[in-house]
Structures are given as C-alpha cells and as structure tokens.
Amino acid sequence: MDQPTFGLILNLISTLLACGGALFFIAGTVGLLRLPDLYSRLHALTKADNLGLGLIMLAVLPQAPDLFFALKMLLLWVLVMIAGATGAHLIAKRAVRGDGEDIL
C-alpha cells in the first residue's frame, strides 16, 4: 500500500472514532438532561463520557507525532477515568447519606 492511501485510511479511522466519541458525549449530556434522578444522571455522565473520551483518545493516536505524545494521551484518559469515578462516588455518597443540600 502506498503512502497517500495509508494516510487516507488513517484519517478515515480517526474521523470515524472522533465522531463516535462525540456521539457518546452528546448521549451523556442527553442522559444528564433526561434521566429523572441524581443517581441515574451520574450513570449517564460517568459511563458515556468515559467512553466518549476513550474513542476521541483513540482517534488522536494515529495522528500522534511520537510515542511520547501517544503515551500522554493514554495517561490523560486514565487520569480522567479515575477523576470521573471518584467524583461520581463522592456525589453518590453524599446523596446516600442524605446530607447534601438540594441534591435532586
């Protein structure tokens, strides 16, 4: 396979993955707006956004100039995943205890 065709295929893969990622971010937001209670909204935010970010990260990987950049992308995804899970846990914990103010 010659160089331009290979580049075209990589760009196509990146575009598809990025569109998929954007779709999951939209789904997370729709879920946040439509779902009825705090817990269900947290489900939508954590899971859909995490998957969306994962796909966008995968979309950027073929465009990475070097290995360092690719590792940084992976690291960002893992860090955001940890932060998302921890944040969701803290919010849900306050809701379970019922000591939050105006939680719904």
Partner: peptide, 12 residues
C-alpha cells in the same frame, strides 16, 4: 465499560 457506555446511551 464499552458495554456500559452503549447501555446508558441507548437508555438515554
């Protein structure tokens, strides 16, 4: 987590 994202997307 892939299944989880798809599941909540379809529900939303």
């Amino acid at each position: 987590s892939l299944r989880g994202g798809l599941d909540v997307t379809l529900r939303a």
